[in-house]
Structures are given as C-alpha cells and as structure tokens.
Amino acid sequence: MSINYDFGDLEAFLAVKETGSFHKAAAKLNLSQSAITRRIRKLEEALDSQLFLRTTRAVKPTLAAKRLQSRAEVMLQDARETSQAMRDESVAFAHQRNALITIAVLPTSIGTLVLPALRRFREEGHSARVRILDLATNEVAEAVAEGEADFGVSSIPALEATTRFEPLLEERIVLALPINHPMAGQRAVEWANLKSLPLILPSRGTGNRLLIDEAMARARQQFFWTYEVGRTSTALEMVKDGLGAALVPESATGGNDVSYVPLNDTRLMRSIGLLRRATHAETSTVKALINALRKTPK
C-alpha cells in the first residue's frame, strides 16, 4: 500500500481543523488559500474520505476528520522529534545544516542572472548546496507560494497575496529568424512584417505569451500562429530548422545558427526579478544568494 500524502498535507489539515477556515489556515501556515485547498484535496483522495463539509458560511469537520486528528498530531510530533534528534546528532557538522537553497527559475534567466550570481556567491565564500528548479513562469510562482522554493526568479509580478516581486532587469522580446532569412540583419522589424511569417509563439497561459498578446492588442494587430510551444529552447530549435520565426526573450539569444531582430515596439518588454514569500524568514545563506543576484551586472 503506497502512501500518497506527506507531512505538509497533515499540517494543512490540522490548521483547517483548528481554525475552521481555509483562509485562516493559509494565513497561519504562510501559504496561499489555493495551496491549502490542494493539500486537503490530496489528503482526501489518498485516504478516500471527505474531511470537511464546506458551505458558504462554515467549514465543518467530518467524522473521518475527527478520527484523523489525533493520528495526524502524533505523526507530526514524531516527525519533529526525529528531526530534532537528527540535528542534535549532527551538531559537529553545523555548517551543513540549513545549507541547502532551493530556487525556482525561468530557464531563460539562468545564463543572464542565475549563473553570474552563483559565481559571485561562491567567490564570496559560501558553500551551500543549491537546487535549481527550472520551471515555467506560473510554476515558479506556485513553487514559491507553496514553499517548495526559498525564492524564485520570474518574469511576472506576484500572483498571490503571500508573495512579493522585486524587479532586477528589463529585457526585450525579439524576433528569432533562420540565419539565411531575408529579414535577418535588419535593425528592426514592424509588427506588419510578421504577417507573412509562419509564427512560433509561446503556449497560451505562459508569462511570455501574455506579454506578446498584450503588445499585439496595443498595436491593434492580430496574427495566427503556425506553431505553439511550451519552451523557448524548443522554439529556437524549430527556427534553426527553418520551420518559422519565433518571438523570444532577448536573454535566450546567443546561438550562432539563429538571427535575432528587435521589433520596432519599445513596449514589448518583460521584467525579470525576485519572487519571494512576503513573511517568510530567510536564512542568512539565502539572503546572501539573493544579494548576489541583485549585484549581477545588468
């Protein structure tokens, strides 16, 4: 029998049980309300039991919830005692405790921001291990809001009330063309020039697609894409193969087999910055990496 829930799900359950509210439970655990809802749903599916009766006025625990409460409390207490014991036994290696930083980043920001910051971080003498989650924009926001990452590097402002966004740089969205395309080498292209091209656009719902759609609307242009892809790297491979032209962030440029031409629209820009939980207590090591990102040349 597999166990398909974790301690975070049990913590969410006990917080809702104690407060009688998904909203108050989210505030107590410093998570978004949607994150609490997902954890409760996951726990209910794993246990095959409804835990709360939800009405417009109240959240009432079911009999299953009342039976689960004492077991959940014991499991969490055992986990805390085990963690404490492990920390006590590892006191001789105190420098390794809390020395793991998890950051959620956009793949296109890695070369521009993340790698230079990591080099500076090491040069300053920090030895913490760094786990990098390269995710889409919405996934970065979710990882930060749910506490799966210490912070994120994202291209859209905070989507949850529990997070805050700090811009670090502005970059253009440019047109990627096959190296031998007639438009390659031009100083800039107009929106109207794109109508004759087989366009490769980011998937709908992504941060880059939102920026592009808004810019098209401002320019009163409407285009029909030929290909829609989830990753900028995929779009560039398709451009390289001659399948079309793609709108991509400037930080993704650099390949010698593709030409990049800016659009004659200064409003087609995106902000790249830090996404952090608003009230989360960050360790000194996390703060040091954040400061290294701030110092990265723009």
Score class of each variant (00 low, 15 high):
Ile3Trp: 02
Asp6Gly: 12
Phe7Pro: 10
Asp9Phe: 12
Asp9Met: 14
Leu10Trp: 04
Ala15Phe: 13
Lys17Asn: 12
Lys17Glu: 15
Lys17Gln: 14
Thr19Arg: 13
Ser21Ile: 00
Ala26Tyr: 12
Lys28Leu: 15
Asn30His: 05
Asn30Glu: 10
Ser34Asp: 13
Ile36Thr: 10
Ile36Val: 12
Arg38Cys: 05
Ile40Ser: 03
Arg41Ala: 13
Lys42Cys: 07
Phe52Gln: 12
Arg54Cys: 05
Arg57Lys: 15
Val59Phe: 08
Arg67Ser: 08
Leu68Val: 03
Leu68Pro: 14
Leu68Phe: 06
Ser70Val: 14
Gln77Asp: 15
Asp78Ile: 10
Glu81Arg: 15
Asp88Tyr: 09
Val91Asp: 05
Ala92Trp: 05
His95Ser: 07
Asn98Val: 03
Ile103Met: 04
Leu106Met: 08
Ser109Asn: 08
Ser109Lys: 07
Ala117Ser: 02
Ala117Phe: 08
Arg122Ala: 02
Glu123Gln: 11
Gly125Val: 09
Arg129Ser: 14
Leu133Asp: 03
Asp134Trp: 09
Asp134Val: 03
Leu135Glu: 10
Leu135Val: 08
Glu139Ser: 15
Glu139Gln: 12
Val140Gln: 11
Ala141Pro: 08
Glu142Cys: 10
Ala145Ser: 13
Glu148Ala: 15
Gly152His: 05
Ser155Leu: 04
Pro157Ala: 02
Pro157Leu: 07
Pro157Ile: 06
Glu160Val: 00
Ala161Met: 00
Ala161Trp: 02
Ala161Asp: 09
Pro167Ile: 01
Pro167Asp: 05
Pro167Thr: 09
Glu170Gln: 12
Val174Ala: 07
Val174Cys: 06
Leu175Pro: 11
Ile179Lys: 02
Ile179Gln: 10
His181Gly: 02
Ala184Trp: 01
Ala184Lys: 04
Gly185Arg: 02
Trp191His: 03
Ala192Ile: 14
Leu194Tyr: 09
Pro198Arg: 05
Leu199Gln: 03
Leu201Asp: 07
Asn208Met: 12
Arg209Val: 04
Leu211His: 14
Asp213Arg: 06
Asp213Ile: 01
Met216Tyr: 00
Ala217Thr: 07
Ala217Gly: 01
Arg220Leu: 01
Gln222Arg: 10
Trp225Asn: 06
Trp225Gly: 09
Glu228Asn: 04
Arg231Asn: 04
Thr232Ile: 13
Ser233Ile: 10
Ser233Cys: 09
Ala235Pro: 01
Leu236Asn: 09
Val239Tyr: 09
Asp241Asn: 14
Gly244Ile: 11
Ala246Trp: 10
Leu247Thr: 13
Val248His: 07
Ala252Gly: 03
Thr253Asn: 07
Gly255Ser: 13
Asp265His: 07
Arg267Thr: 13
Arg267Ala: 14
Arg267Phe: 00
Met269Leu: 12
Met269Arg: 06
Ser271Arg: 15
Ile272Asp: 03
Leu274Arg: 11
Leu275Tyr: 04
Arg276Ser: 05
Arg276Gln: 09
Ala278Cys: 06
Ala278Lys: 13
His280Gln: 15
Glu282Cys: 10
Val286Phe: 06
Lys287Asp: 00
Lys287Ser: 06
Leu289Gly: 02
Asn291His: 04
Asn291Phe: 00
Ala292Pro: 03
Leu293Ser: 08
Pro297Gln: 02
